[in-house]
Design a protein around this nucleic acid. Structure first.
Lengths: 150, 150
DNA sequence: CAATTCCCTACTGCTTGACTAGGGAAATAG
DNA sequence: CTATTTCCCTAGTCAAGCAGTAGGGAATTG
């Protein structure tokens, strides 16, 4: 039942993107600094998030990463699933040799549990985290409060 | 989010004890055979279950293991917690260096999730598994249907 | 062109999970 | 009392996977 560092960092990074970047791409190094994570390691995680069309990137100066979807459309469940497989794979290893009756019984029960956990995890979004940040009075970095249009 | 083999085997073994042994102690080797698990490995798991007063043992011929509590008083949550720590320890690693604001936000959110998962896991008992076994028509081994009193 | 920033592949070290192994201690049958 | 049965305790091993590092390449911009 352990959550990997990758998933945790991914969630933190997505919260960071939603919270701190005001529409403009954020450099991986800035995120890494704010989130106390190795930039090199974050890169790997972002590669996965990109493949899943959660974030996108822009190269060169003034480049960086940004969310592709709205924060309320990204769930913790999706992120975790992405980085460590489905709940069912995790909890219900069916790699058992002889599938004895009692294996089938416990499998069935754990599948239901896995499904319930899935629902919980899919019920929390990045937007929820952002709101929580607001309530907790977390300072936004680089956020202007309003946008200058020239 | 992975469940360890130990937890899984423990659950299977407890189901086995509840289902197959008709009050008399069950040898570890019999359980291991029915559940397709190494007897030696099961021993280790049983040591933990014993320390938690879920099962007890009797040595010598006709000895074996038996449940100390009623099946409906043993939850999957307790067993898993026993063998791999609490949900919160698993999901909310607070071993983070500088506790940045966003760390606190995600921590708080994950703690709530962990609590919900705990409730789910504590809602399923060994008795539930036994009932499931009955519904699925799993054959009871060594169960007499009624008890001979001489 | 030079600087910036992302991108891809590979490597490494360390922890942990999943067992295996050896011998010891209690209970019971005969 | 002794042999057998069964649990009990400690330690060791082997492989997989996690967490992180490293090196160089490709696109973009000024």
């Amino acid at each position: 039942m352990k959550l990997s560092c990758k998933s945790l960092y991914a969630i933190r990074a997505l919260f960071d993107l939603a919270y701190h970047s005001g529409g403009t791409p954020a450099k991986i190094e800035d995120i890494a600094r704010r989130e106390c994570v190795s930039a090199r390691f974050l890169e790997q995680i972002f590669k996965d998030l990109k493949r899943a069309d959660i974030i996108a990137s822009k190269r060169g100066p003034k480049g960086g990463y940004f969310l592709v979807r709205r924060p309320e459309e990204i769930t913790l469940g999706e992120v975790i699933r992405l980085l460590e497989g489905t709940m069912e794979e995790s909890m219900c290893r069916d790699d058992v040799e002889g599938d004895s009756p009692s294996v089938r019984v416990t499998q069935a029960a754990l599948q239901e549990v896995a499904e319930q956990v899935r629902q919980i995890l899919d019920g929390v979004t990045i937007e929820d985290l952002a709101q929580r940040g607001e309530q907790m009075g977390v300072q936004r970095e680089g956020y202007k409060g309003f946008v200058y249009v020239i």
